[in-house]
Design a protein around this nucleic acid. Structure first.
Lengths: 110, 110
DNA sequence: TATGTATATCGTTAATCGACGATAAGCGTT
DNA sequence: AACGCTTATCGTCGATTAACGATATACATA
């Protein structure tokens, strides 16, 4: 740990700190949590690169069991970042553009 | 980015899917994981708004025990997003601008 | 040195995550 | 209806998280 020095940028003001918006924090936390695992980042990346992807293709691209990938997809769906569309016996996944845009906006506004 | 495929957005091409960069996914996952909890989002927000903040002020601003806040701060430090500087008997926390910029860049590039 | 303040760490507990294999459910085809 | 293929869910297990109170550590000052 650095030794502090005096004239640093740490203003030691005594004013009361106002809370950031709780709902805002929860929204961002929910979205970032969806990306808080390398496997989910890779899935999202895959979907963005390919625009859409059948579930089986995602499973093939990942070094994980099918059930594990399915779990990650469920988490991504719950976050809103990803949508799944039933296509016959298969499921086609794609990014939900609005949610992705919202995530980017919230992070950019940090 | 591949051909948009025929008609519907779900291209059912059979081509092999290439893996996204693993290291890249891990870097982004590590940074997003740091924000994957509302308390940590609020701490980061606080630090960005006030530029820097004494640990005690953060504790006061959060509805959590001091030890819990300290744990979240540790996680944020480990992610690189936040730095702590010892200032006498206190610790002054601030955002690490480069790490924050990196996070924004990675998310924006998604 | 002793004391008080500020922060970090420890130890515990309940809950959740992440992984897997096994199995169920949905759909198209025979 | 029965089968095969694809995907989701279940059950389990070990590891990790998040929370807290208690305690240790570091620093400034009396």
């Amino acid at each position: 740990m650095a030794k502090a020095g005096s004239g640093n940028s740490c203003g030691s003001r005594a004013e009361k700190v106002s809370l950031p918006d709780v709902a805002w924090a929860e929204e961002l936390a929910k979205l970032t949590w969806a990306l808080a695992h390398p496997a989910r980042v890779r899935i999202v990346r895959l979907l963005l690169q390919r625009d859409s992807c059948l579930c089986g293709e995602i499973v093939e691209a990942m070094p994980l069991a099918q059930s594990t990938v399915s779990q990650h997809l469920k988490i991504l769906k719950e976050s809103g970042l990803v949508q799944g569309e039933i296509d016959g016996p298969r499921v086609c996944y794609c990014i939900h553009p609005k949610a992705m845009q919202r995530l980017k906006q919230l992070v950019a506004e940090l």
